[in-house]
Design a protein around this nucleic acid. Structure first.
Length: 284
DNA sequence: CATTTCACCTGGTGGC
DNA sequence: TGCCACCAGGTGAAAT
């Protein structure tokens, strides 16, 4: 579920609460492991690290870690070298929460990190589509998303992503190796604001349309970040607080409701196996 | 290779 | 109330 604005909101919230804190203990659930790194190894590896910073890349949350202990030369956090990363992907229903240790343990809690401050960092994920990975940077390269960042990509690079592609623009927007972070909600919303039908062939869009789309994406995503993301059913940020961008949706999950611009009924179709919403009058 | 389809999971909703 | 079909923010493997 969580797309770029939700993941950004969570990463910022987690960063504000745990930056500089130390992981004193880590617990991971056993059963079906939603983990890229096996539970036992991940728990052992995390304990003892200090969290230097938490940020978002595409739909991934990256926690930058350094081994705790005396650091030659400086006590300052920024000057410690990142030696490992804990990478969290929330899948459809994942949550990353900062709680007090006495907060009730939600069903489907798969990881709990006990921090030196007394807080806990918890990963909860009913559907288990989420993924947790520990990377030792001495052995593996740092995490990099294959796709471009939609908030910062320029016009030429953006247009080049779609050139000579044969698939629907909606499908292309969902492809994380082209653009990282766009999911079903924001693909539909940005296509609406750009006035483009979701089934249009990506490679046949004009440069004017592509530029409209790039700007629409940037506007929709940054507006959604300002509102703390979209809470469609169960999304909450690091404190358990819902977002408000769902109130601004123009097409997503508004099937048969009137278009906010022209009043035409919003249509629902299936593109790339995902439900897709658009205004047949405003989008061509 | 590029593109499409489907399996992976649990839970909520709405119809009968 | 219960049962069932269908739907859900994502991805990656398998098929085409």
């Amino acid at each position: 579920m969580p797309e770029l604005p939700e993941v950004e909101t969570i990463a910022r919230g987690v960063d504000a609460r745990v930056r500089g804190d130390r992981i004193v203990d880590a617990w991971f659930s056993r059963h079906p492991e939603p983990f890229k790194t096996p539970a036992g190894r991940q728990a052992r590896a995390l304990a003892g690290h200090r969290i230097l910073a938490v940020h978002r890349t595409g739909k991934h949350i990256v926690c930058e870690l350094a081994p705790d202990g005396p650091v030659a030369g400086s006590h300052r956090l920024e000057q410690k070298a990142v030696s490992a990363q804990w990478i969290v992907h929330l899948g459809m229903t994942g949550r990353l929460l900062v709680t007090t240790p006495d907060a009730p343990i939600a069903p489907h809690t798969h990881a709990r990190l006990t921090l030196h401050s007394g807080k806990e960092l918890r990963f909860v994920d009913p559907r288990r589509f989420g993924r947790l990975e520990f990377r030792d940077l001495a052995r593996t390269a740092g995490f990099e998303s294959p796709g471009a960042e939609p908030l910062t990509i320029g016009p030429n690079e953006f247009a080049a992503l779609f050139r000579s592609r044969k698939l629907a623009i909606k499908a292309a927007l969902l492809n994380q190796s082209l653009l990282a972070g766009v999911g079903n909600i924001y693909a539909d919303e940005s296509l609406f604001h750009a006035g483009i039908r979701p089934r249009r062939n990506a490679g046949r869009l004009t440069s004017t349309e592509l530029e409209k789309l790039r700007l629409a994406l940037r506007e929709v995503l940054s507006h959604a970040i300002r509102l703390g993301g979209s809470s469609v059913s169960d999304y909450v940020d690091a404190e358990g607080v819902r977002g408000f961008f769902q109130l601004e949706h123009c097409v997503y999950q508004r099937t048969d409701e009137p278009c906010r611009i022209c009043g035409t009924r919003i249509r629902r179709i299936v593109v790339a196996g995902r439900s897709t919403h658009y205004c047949p009058r405003c989008q061509r």
